[in-house]
Simulated assay, not measured.
Amino acid sequence: MAATAANDPRSTLRGGLPDRYLTPEDIAALLSVPLETVYAWRKKRTGPPGFRIGKHLRYDPAAVRTWVDSLSADNAA
Rank of each mutant, 00 (worst) to 15 (best):
M1K: 11
A6P: 00
N7Q: 05
N7R: 09
D8E: 09
R10Q: 07
R10P: 03
T12E: 14
L13F: 06
L13P: 01
R14V: 15
R14Y: 06
G15C: 04
L17D: 04
P18S: 10
D19G: 11
R20G: 06
L22R: 09
T23F: 06
P24H: 08
P24V: 06
P24N: 12
E25Q: 14
E25K: 07
D26W: 04
A28C: 06
A28R: 03
A28P: 00
A29I: 10
A29E: 13
L30I: 14
L30A: 04
S32L: 07
V33Y: 00
P34S: 12
V38R: 00
V38F: 02
Y39I: 01
Y39M: 02
Y39L: 07
K44P: 00
R45C: 04
T46I: 09
G47W: 00
G47E: 00
P49Q: 08
P49F: 11
P49T: 09
P49Y: 04
P49H: 05
P49N: 08
G50A: 06
G50F: 01
F51C: 04
G54I: 08
K55H: 12
L57S: 10
R58T: 07
Y59M: 08
D60H: 15
P61T: 14
A62K: 12
A62I: 03
A63C: 04
R65V: 14
R65D: 13
W67T: 00
W67A: 02
D69A: 15
D69S: 14
S70K: 09
L71E: 05
A73Y: 08
D74R: 15
N75G: 03
N75F: 09
A77W: 02
